[in-house]
Design a protein around this nucleic acid. Sequence first.
DNA 1: CAGTGAGCGAGCTTCCGCTTGACTT
Length: 784
Amino acid sequence: MAKNLVIVESPAKAKTIEKILGSDFEVKSCFGHIRDLEKDDMGIDIQNNFKPKYAVPEDKEKIVKELKKLAKDTDEVWLATDEDREGEAISWHLCEVLGLDPHTTKRIVFHEITKPAIERAVQQPRLLDMNLVNAQQARRILDRIVGFELSPVLWRKMSMRNSLSAGRVQSVAVRLIVEREREINAFNAVSSFRVEAFFTAKDPQGKSMSFKAEGPGRFKTAEDAEKFLTQCIGAAYTVKDIQVKPGKKSPAAPFTTSTLQQEASRKLGYSVSKTMLLAQKLYESGKITYMRTDSVNLSDTALTDIKQAIDKNWGEKYHQHRKFKNKNESAQEAHEAIRPTYMENSSVDDSDTKRLYDLIWKRTIASQMADAELEKTIAKIDISTNHEELTASGEVLKFDGFLKVYMESRDDEDLTDEEEQEGVLPPLQVKQVVDLKEMKATERFTRPAPRYTEASLVKKLEELGIGRPSTYAPTITTIQKRTYVEKRDKEGVKREFRILVLKADKINKLTDAENTGAEKSKLFPSDLGMIVTDFLNQYFDSVMDYGFTAKIEEEFDEIAHGKKVWNKMLNEFYQPFHQDVANTLEKAERVKGERFLGDDPETGKPVVARMGRYGPMIQIGKAEDEEKPRFAKLKATQSIETISMADAMELFRLPRALGMFEDQEVTVNIGRFGPYAQHDKKFYSLKKEMDPYTVELDEIAPLIVEKRTAKDERTIKIFEKEKIQILKGPYGPYIKQGLKNYKIPKERIDHAADITVEEAKAIIEDVKANPPKKKAPARKKKTE
DNA sequence: CAGTGAGCGAGCTTCCGCTTGACTT
């Protein structure tokens, strides 16, 4: 038994630190928080100054028991949880649960897992900071109050039966997506004409080179653009002025959780949860530092390591020492930036993981490399027939610096037409005459802000100070699980644009077409998301305010600095908030999100789009009418807010009868699980590309045949009389009787085809006698 | 697996932030 017990949060960290500290220290992990508020009565005694009621969750009982035993048998316990609000609270909970005295127990912290940092920490222990702990308790209690008082309001006031939820973070995340969608829907594209002139000029060797120049501003109408081109007929073009300016580019800071998620999304197309899963693997195998961090800091040992790698690979002049500062004020910086643990270490097996590792490696290296040096050339070209001038600009890379390894990519929202890639200009001289090949005036349209991707939403949330590195990915999952938001693609629509071409002193008018509005893997709000957001905005504007989190974070900081009392702060928040909850419960109407579309031309009955119990739908006629109303479900891509009368009526064309196949009728419809065909009492899901409104019989027939053969292939053996089947599933062979499935014992799995009826029966009886353990949700208590 | 759509009411759901693990019928 070691003399000292050190407790950290992460088990991977525990292993590394144990090696550094040696045999006098045993290092254990508590796996994050070990206590949480009870679920009953919110776990808060509001009348009694918001006194929290904590409990050890079921899935933490085992580790708590183990820590208790170790703490008892050791001379001294050291609390080494992360140095932030949550970490301080975890240490305090450890004191409470392990029976340690918070006034004497040693508390140590380090921001990096390096030998000097840890040895230094052990020499300078401090005590628990109860102010910081209280700031965390205030944070936790406020979130519980908001979540557990708002969610039930939704259950009462929304007409849909989902398990709805609301919270300080998720509801604002949904709001961002809803508002962006409406901005896009309300957007009117305005067009203007941009002039580009294509020239040739001779270089000193007499070789002809072509280059491009931009026109003077933009023309609002085709007439203005044509007028300008007409003026240019027969003109001579002379270089009037050349300016050469040096420029530079600097590398981006090393990765934090949020920037890693953004770059992995843009460069590798990973979802935020995929990025975090792969990063976790890299962390656990010791390849990278901790992946949930908001710090851009690199440890001194890392800096030395990185410098060595740069010097070795590219030479000293590529190295530049840099210290990055966090832009984000809410950052708590308990860890380092995300970086490789050793720059030398680069063998990663799995290809997806390797691509992420390479990204981290390059970003880390680049962050300590020299600026890239550029030379920007701007040439003004005079037009002899009018007073206008054209501008040609070019860029030459003089020294590549960090660009040798890494260039940060951008969200398309940051890109404007002006920032398109600069080309290289031929070596021009003032007074040189250049030859115009052609001049084009192209119609261009303004674009609305793009929809959020998972990663750009994380970026926005971080800017607003909402959420933490450990919650970005789960938050994105939650709002999709609640069906407030859906990630999907959107097909673009064709749009024509005009081009005026001046060539050989003649003007030609052309039209071309482009695809516009196409989106890939973007977040779209559902009708439910919109309705819930509108409701919350109407009754709980303070919590829904984008500045709400920032405002209460300031107060948490004041608590942490001992300038404010935590339960007083909570009371100031709670009184008006709870009043809003009570008022809303009493006064607000049940929300249906109804929108009137028009009258049905056939019957004259009103047609409305609204939210039903099972989702958005169209209703013709009223419930109180003698004839029952007709209903149709909206397609996944349609929404109550934007659907047209014509599209709504179109939905009533289902179910469709397609004709007979093998003497049985084939019909198509859309069900709970999407479009399907029905034939001989059996169901067949339509393929993704099949549209139930237009699909033909000869497309369905192969589907029916295909399913039959697939079933044959899945079947290993059938015992007709006993209704027992031996089937091949995704996890290997299994036995099916009636509708129930039974697992085949390991030792028989390889010989599944040889199983006899008796054997199969025995296996079924056996499984029935010893039912496999169900993986019960960890938080639920067993009632048996 | 392929229904439904009004209203009532039983019994259920729900937050944010720390951290990994279990293992398919």
